[in-house]
């Protein structure tokens, strides 16, 4: 039985979990944990979106040829 979920739908969950767990190993106070998690989550999301945009443009120009 395989889970019927889109792999892209799970990406935000993965980003939130990784940011929270990583940040919680850096600090003990919840305000610091959440702030650091937000910063790391934003960085990861921007990084992945940038890669997605580059791949989209490459695919677009290859198709346009």
């Amino acid at each position: 039985m395989t889970l019927p979920l889109s792999m892209y739908a799970q990406l935000p969950i993965l980003i939130v979990l990784i940011s929270l767990v990583y940040s919680a190993t850096r600090y003990d106070r919840w305000d610091l944990i959440l702030g650091e998690a937000f910063r790391w989550g934003s960085r990861m999301a921007i990084f992945l979106l940038a890669i997605g945009a580059v791949l989209f443009l490459v695919a677009y120009f290859i198709d346009a040829r």
């Binding site: 767990v21 919680a24 190993t25 850096r26 600090y27 003990d28 610091l32």
Partner: peptide, 27 residues
């Protein structure tokens, strides 16, 4: 993607083990 999730969970737990052993990186 599934096996990547399992590996990420395992490797993240190394950080958690260290946090339990020696405390957070920034106390």
């Amino acid at each position: 993607l599934g096996w990547i999730y399992t590996v990420i969970a395992g490797v993240l737990n190394i950080l958690v083990i260290y946090d339990a052993y020696a405390g957070p990186a920034h106390p």
